[in-house]
Lab assay of single mutants.
Amino acid sequence: MSDQEAKPSTEDLGDKKEGEYIKLKVIGQDSSEIHFKVKMTTHLKKLKESYCQRQGVPMNSLRFLFEGQRIADNHTPKELGMEEEDVIEVYQEQTGGHSTV
């Protein structure tokens, strides 16, 4: 019986991991920090939209990076291997420009 009891508790931990929340720091170019608590399985588009709304800027005017890689709207913290207190960097999107060649 103890084996049966242990097995469901392991499964519960697996389920808990799926719905687990982590805190992420979003740091802007001006070094301002906003902290977000997100589920591991939530699409990061929600975090990006919330950040842009707080900053009063359109979402397409900023780019969000985690460990140097651009974050897509459909990425989740779990897919990117994010952990508690990880940092997302935000930069002004640069458009235009010309070749110097």
Rank of each mutant, 00 (worst) to 15 (best):
2 S>K: 11
3 D>R: 09
3 D>P: 07
8 P>N: 06
8 P>A: 11
8 P>V: 04
8 P>M: 02
9 S>L: 10
9 S>M: 08
9 S>A: 13
10 T>W: 13
11 E>Q: 08
12 D>K: 10
13 L>F: 11
13 L>W: 10
13 L>K: 13
14 G>S: 08
15 D>H: 14
15 D>F: 10
16 K>Y: 09
17 K>Y: 10
17 K>A: 09
18 E>S: 11
18 E>M: 12
18 E>D: 14
20 E>T: 01
21 Y>Q: 13
22 I>V: 08
22 I>W: 01
23 K>Y: 04
24 L>G: 03
24 L>Y: 01
24 L>C: 09
25 K>M: 03
26 V>K: 04
29 Q>I: 15
29 Q>W: 14
29 Q>T: 06
30 D>V: 03
30 D>R: 09
31 S>C: 09
31 S>G: 09
32 S>F: 06
33 E>C: 03
33 E>Q: 08
36 F>C: 03
36 F>E: 00
38 V>S: 01
39 K>H: 07
41 T>F: 00
41 T>Q: 15
42 T>E: 05
43 H>K: 15
48 K>E: 01
48 K>G: 01
48 K>P: 01
49 E>A: 14
50 S>N: 00
51 Y>H: 02
52 C>V: 05
53 Q>F: 15
54 R>N: 01
58 P>M: 00
58 P>G: 09
63 R>D: 00
63 R>M: 07
64 F>G: 02
64 F>W: 05
64 F>K: 02
65 L>V: 12
65 L>T: 13
66 F>E: 04
66 F>A: 05
67 E>S: 05
68 G>K: 01
68 G>E: 03
69 Q>V: 05
73 D>Q: 06
73 D>H: 05
75 H>G: 02
76 T>I: 01
77 P>L: 01
78 K>T: 05
80 L>Y: 06
81 G>D: 06
82 M>R: 04
84 E>D: 11
84 E>C: 15
85 E>T: 07
85 E>I: 05
86 D>V: 04
87 V>A: 13
88 I>R: 03
88 I>W: 01
89 E>A: 07
90 V>R: 01
90 V>S: 08
90 V>G: 04
92 Q>F: 03
92 Q>C: 13
93 E>P: 06
94 Q>M: 10
95 T>P: 05
96 G>F: 04
96 G>W: 01
